[in-house]
Design a protein around this nucleic acid. Structure first.
Lengths: 298, 298
DNA sequence: ATGCATTGATCGTTTTTTTCGATTACTATT
DNA sequence: AATAGTAATCGAAAAAAACGATCAATGCAT
């Protein structure tokens, strides 16, 4: 059919040893095998590479060129093998990770330096988008992994939960609930609730958490990032819900806003990680998931 | 044992078609064969290149790198094949040709342009040396071909005769033999014969031609090229023998020297070409030999 | 000269690998 | 629920590779 890498190896061996039998020994085959292989190669190339002489093996002028090329090929093959070798240890290569916008700025940045030190060869490409679009990209292969809020319909994906992320109510300093230790979900029913735009899952989770429908809503404005919402609260436009993750990342800064937990707890979102069931790098993703779940507290 | 070129071809085919069955068809094998080959390759690399999904075939991030490398390798293999292909037509590559000094300057130069036009890819490396040294280099493989005067002991070589090269006696204008139509060999016995240095075969042939031994010689001086001998004759230091080849190449110039053939002819040297019996380019050398033997008269 | 040692080519046999065709398992679509 | 499409898998057949033994040619030592 075609020439083989084995033939090229034998070829180089003969050139190195200038001797069929020695080359055969060094290649761990018998001389007849090597002899046949060289013959076959010469037949396929249509030219003689070696000039056999009972006394010595000479390389023809063409042979020299062929040898140069053969060594190039073998070198490239070596490169291919080491390329694969480098990939074997977990998280040692490219990882295209999609994250939802209400997680991205808060979860990953604080751990990037730790990630880098533990998986020095990892090249992380981050893509921030809303859950539905992340799923599309995961399905078509343009993302390897997504981090989003659960539950979310993820057909053919393997999903692990990374953590639970409590919601807090964020109030302006002079809000009437400012003295409360904690806030009951129903207490928010009359408040002006500030939400993200349509499509952000946090919007739905917040509505869930407050037991309200968007129809009977008192939503007065929609922001496109949590930072915007915080600014709006600071300007007395209403209240909002913030995930602990964002709070931990100091989203409030020096706004002086108040944070109240929900009474009794349990008002939260689950953060999960998902990948295609068929993805061969599953084990690596598990490693990464554990790393994220056990991240050092900030 | 190792990865094969075939596997890499299949790999690229699957990447091209994004489909095992189509790739298999395009590669003229069954799907099971191709499937097994890809599996085997992935096993050898220790990493998955494709992510199989009942719906589609995705290339893993590593897979992309592997594919790039695979295409490089296949490209280099192609280069190797075309390298060999270029070599196939006769006299299309390097030829290391050794020539004796009494032939080199006269035989080859006039035909170089014809050679070039007929064998445009031929790269001729010329080496000028005395017969014995040419033989050594031919034996050790540093020359492919030699042109020298016959007979000459050439063990393990194949030899062809290119041409016969008549000797002429070269006389100063006022020499006592100047009126002779032709010269008999014995007539030179008393002359001062100018010869090349020891080692030049022409020296021996000239002595042969004159039926004299070096012991009873009247050699007065030894030159190291035919041009030198001509100059010496022009200075009345004696007579010499010149091969027709040198005469045809106008070695006399405007010296006004006389040339006399030998009486009855048959005083000549044979010019031959030789190469190792084992040299695979034998056929090309025959082609070249015919070209030289049938060279257009100058 | 003559016998011996070396070396690559060659041959027939055995072993291994490859390839194939058929089937299976799974999925998405109708 | 049925169907069409797809890659994996399995056992059998075919092909290729590898081996061991032998041969032929050569150079070297006796």
């Amino acid at each position: 059919m075609s020439i083989t890498i084995k033939q090229l190896k034998y070829l180089c061996a003969v050139a190195d040893y200038q001797h069929f039998t020695k080359a055969a020994d060094a290649s761990f085959v018998t001389q007849s095998t090597l002899s046949a292989a060289i013959n076959e190669l010469e037949l396929q190339l249509g030219v003689k590479v070696f000039e056999r002489n009972k006394r010595s093996v000479l390389v023809t002028p063409l042979g020299k060129k062929v040898l140069v090329q053969a060594r190039i090929i073998l070198g490239e093959v070596e490169d291919l093998l080491s390329l694969a070798e480098d990939f074997k240890d977990p998280l040692s290569s490219e990882l295209r990770l999609g994250v939802i916008p209400t997680v991205g700025p808060f979860l990953l940045p604080p751990m990037l330096s730790d990630l880098r030190s533990q998986f020095s060869k990892l090249k992380l490409y981050l893509k921030e988008d809303m859950s539905a679009r992340l799923l599309t990209q995961l399905q078509d292969g343009s993302l390897d992994l997504v981090i989003l809020a659960l539950p979310f319909e993820l057909p053919n994906m393997e999903v692990v939960t990374l953590m639970s992320d409590d919601f807090f109510v964020c109030l302006p300093p002079e809000h009437c609930l400012k003295e409360a230790e904690s806030i009951c979900q129903d207490e928010l029913r009359g408040e002006d609730l500030l939400l993200l735009e349509e499509g952000h899952c946090l919007r739905d989770h917040a509505l869930d958490a407050c037991n309200i429908e968007i129809s009977d809503s008192n939503v007065v404005y929609e922001g496109n990032s949590l930072h915007t919402l915080v600014q709006m609260v600071a300007n007395n436009l209403g209240v909002t819900l913030l995930p602990a993750m964002a709070v931990d990342a100091n989203i409030l800064g020096d706004t002086g806003l108040q944070l109240k937990p929900f009474t009794g707890g349990g008002v939260n979102r689950k953060i999960g990680m998902a990948w295609r069931q068929t993805d061969p790098r599953r084990d690596e993703y598990i490693v990464l998931a554990k790393f994220i779940a056990n991240r050092p507290t900030i």
